[in-house]
Nucleic acid binder design. Sequence first.
DNA 1: CAAGTTTTTTACCATTTGGTAAAGTTACGA
DNA 2: TCGTAACTTTACCAAATGGTAAAAAACTTG
Lengths: 204, 204
Amino acid sequence: MNNPARKPSRIQTENRQRIRDAALGLFATHGFRGTTLDQIADACGMHKPNLIYYYESKEAIHIDLLNTLMEEWLNPLDSMNPEGDPLEEITAYIRRKMEMSRLYPRESRLFANEIVQGAPRMLPHLETTLKPLFDKQCGIIAKWMNDGKIAEMDPAHLIFSIWAVTQHYADFEAQIAVLLPGDDKRERGAEQFVEMMFRKVLMP
Amino acid sequence: MNNPARKPSRIQTENRQRIRDAALGLFATHGFRGTTLDQIADACGMHKPNLIYYYESKEAIHIDLLNTLMEEWLNPLDSMNPEGDPLEEITAYIRRKMEMSRLYPRESRLFANEIVQGAPRMLPHLETTLKPLFDKQCGIIAKWMNDGKIAEMDPAHLIFSIWAVTQHYADFEAQIAVLLPGDDKRERGAEQFVEMMFRKVLMP
DNA sequence: CAAGTTTTTTACCATTTGGTAAAGTTACGA
DNA sequence: TCGTAACTTTACCAAATGGTAAAAAACTTG
């Protein structure tokens, strides 16, 4: 990896992706300190120094994951359309969040790990990227409430509760699996419940 | 600590408590692997071998914490009274959960860490202790719904959503602090919001 | 296909970390 | 108050872990 300015080769792109994929699963379940370079190397069929060839340190892998994750993660929130039907827009947002919990539980857990531990590597990112978006969307929701389109409440806490409930299904999956062993219709049940719940909350 | 059968001395009780208190904070913020014996020793003003004198290993401290935590943690759920007024009972439960998030965020985060990482040391405990209680309380709630006292829905997902929303305030505090910087009335706002929200959901 | 560049592998190292051995010190009941 | 059991401290150690050096292999390009 001589010239960092040059655009990455095919092998570089592929291998970085393999590393990220392996590291994502491990960081998500064992946390940053709980994951070793050897584990990551094993999981993606490489040798430890090879990882360091592509990422200068273990922390660099972690940071790269968090950064790429943040973008994907915030997309749904950003795509709420202020011109659309309020109840529809929020419901669509909730549906996408549930879908993401179902399809990308590793990402959800990586994020959860980071935040539970005080966001040591993400606080700046939260302030510069998440905060402005959050404030903007709170404004949109507040306007909808003012217009009487949905029930009046604190938009910030509404968003928190949506995050809490939807991400819970990914982050606390281990617990849910114990309490609701019938694996088949669990996901459908969850999605129906959550939608119903927020419809009740939001009805003007 | 010669005779393990004998009841613990005053010093033993005190020092074990000091260790648990220090370890709780560290495990909660850095996770199990992220916390070192030296850190714990530092935090409670002891030397590392002294910890091992009281607990046979780092893992033993962690397990002891999780076990004692579980009991306290489940108390509120257990104290829902099937004879009481349904809406009152559930609201009281929610209030106690919010209070616990506010007063014992370390415990909440310790638990969150453990579950997010797949509950490696707690799965058996979840199955033997939490599951039966959960099923019992689901039954109580189902009966209330059958009697038309509260709105009809899946009691399991209702409990999940209560856990999700209430614990979110402790577990994701780092994020909330960024998004809602006005520290003063945040807690009141959260408690009012959550109560209002579930009242709407539960109204028959 | 030859020369140079990128990528992989082997061998290694310094630090950290969980834990031990054993000597030294304190508390406490007879 | 004296002897013994409980507790603390100092000095260690072996394994694990993040990372490096450098040679070997593979790939790219003129």
